[in-house]
Simulated scan of single mutants.
Amino acid sequence: MHQEYNKLVRDRIPEIIHQAGRECKVQVMTEAAYHQALRDKLIEEAQEAAEATAQDLVKELADLYEVIDSLCAACQIERSSILAEQEKRRSERGGFDQRFRLLWTQ
């Protein structure tokens, strides 16, 4: 059965598909298309992490980290820059430790 995907997949997915006795077609994206595909994949993986069961959460967060690492590499962003910005934002705006839910403002 033919099924369309048109999305970024991990490097070994075509190999895994072929090993399963199935066929697939892949295309190498341009740099701009790759950057956009990574951003799209970021949303996809974040949604999967948001909907994950407790036992699948680690796997889904690992997938999310993989996309983040790939996006950082593609955009030449150092992890240390992200961690420094995270610390700055935590210092300025706080973390989520107090579990506040904002109900309203006026």
Results as ranks from 00 to 15, higher is better:
residue 3 Q to K: 12
residue 5 Y to W: 11
residue 5 Y to M: 05
residue 7 K to C: 07
residue 8 L to G: 10
residue 8 L to N: 13
residue 9 V to N: 03
residue 10 R to Q: 00
residue 10 R to P: 06
residue 11 D to M: 00
residue 11 D to H: 06
residue 11 D to G: 04
residue 12 R to P: 00
residue 13 I to F: 07
residue 15 E to M: 00
residue 16 I to R: 01
residue 16 I to G: 00
residue 16 I to D: 09
residue 17 I to S: 01
residue 17 I to E: 01
residue 18 H to T: 04
residue 18 H to F: 02
residue 18 H to Y: 08
residue 19 Q to D: 14
residue 21 G to Y: 09
residue 21 G to I: 04
residue 21 G to K: 06
residue 22 R to Q: 08
residue 22 R to I: 00
residue 22 R to W: 05
residue 22 R to K: 11
residue 22 R to E: 12
residue 23 E to Q: 15
residue 23 E to F: 13
residue 24 C to R: 04
residue 24 C to E: 02
residue 25 K to E: 13
residue 25 K to D: 09
residue 25 K to M: 11
residue 26 V to D: 05
residue 26 V to K: 06
residue 26 V to H: 03
residue 27 Q to M: 13
residue 27 Q to P: 01
residue 27 Q to I: 08
residue 28 V to T: 14
residue 28 V to R: 12
residue 29 M to A: 10
residue 30 T to R: 02
residue 30 T to K: 02
residue 31 E to F: 12
residue 34 Y to T: 01
residue 34 Y to L: 04
residue 35 H to S: 07
residue 35 H to K: 13
residue 35 H to G: 00
residue 35 H to I: 14
residue 36 Q to M: 00
residue 37 A to V: 03
residue 37 A to H: 07
residue 38 L to W: 02
residue 38 L to F: 12
residue 39 R to Q: 08
residue 39 R to G: 04
residue 40 D to T: 02
residue 40 D to I: 02
residue 40 D to R: 00
residue 41 K to C: 02
residue 41 K to N: 05
residue 41 K to S: 05
residue 41 K to E: 05
residue 42 L to T: 07
residue 42 L to E: 08
residue 43 I to D: 15
residue 43 I to M: 03
residue 43 I to K: 12
residue 43 I to T: 11
residue 44 E to F: 02
residue 44 E to Q: 10
residue 44 E to C: 03
residue 45 E to M: 08
residue 45 E to A: 12
residue 46 A to Q: 11
residue 47 Q to L: 02
residue 47 Q to H: 03
residue 47 Q to I: 03
residue 47 Q to F: 00
residue 47 Q to W: 01
residue 48 E to H: 03
residue 49 A to P: 03
residue 49 A to Y: 05
residue 49 A to V: 02
residue 50 A to M: 09
residue 50 A to S: 15
residue 50 A to R: 10
residue 50 A to Q: 07
residue 50 A to T: 01
residue 52 A to I: 12
residue 53 T to Q: 02
residue 54 A to S: 05
residue 54 A to T: 03
residue 55 Q to A: 03
residue 55 Q to W: 00
residue 55 Q to D: 06
residue 55 Q to E: 03
residue 56 D to N: 10
residue 57 L to R: 12
residue 57 L to C: 01
residue 58 V to M: 07
residue 58 V to P: 00
residue 59 K to L: 12
residue 59 K to N: 10
residue 59 K to T: 13
residue 59 K to A: 14
residue 59 K to Y: 13
residue 60 E to W: 06
residue 60 E to P: 11
residue 61 L to R: 12
residue 62 A to H: 11
residue 62 A to C: 10
residue 63 D to T: 10
residue 63 D to V: 09
residue 63 D to K: 13
residue 64 L to D: 06
residue 64 L to A: 05
residue 65 Y to H: 15
residue 65 Y to A: 15
residue 65 Y to S: 15
residue 66 E to Y: 15
residue 66 E to A: 14
residue 67 V to C: 10
residue 67 V to E: 11
residue 67 V to F: 14
residue 67 V to R: 11
residue 68 I to E: 01
residue 68 I to P: 00
residue 68 I to H: 08
residue 70 S to Y: 10
residue 70 S to H: 14
residue 70 S to D: 15
residue 70 S to W: 09
residue 71 L to S: 13
residue 72 C to Q: 13
residue 72 C to G: 09
residue 72 C to W: 05
residue 72 C to M: 15
residue 72 C to R: 13
residue 73 A to E: 15
residue 74 A to M: 09
residue 77 I to M: 07
residue 77 I to F: 14
residue 77 I to P: 04
residue 77 I to A: 04
residue 78 E to F: 13
residue 79 R to E: 15
residue 79 R to I: 14
residue 80 S to N: 11
residue 80 S to M: 08
residue 81 S to E: 15
residue 81 S to Y: 06
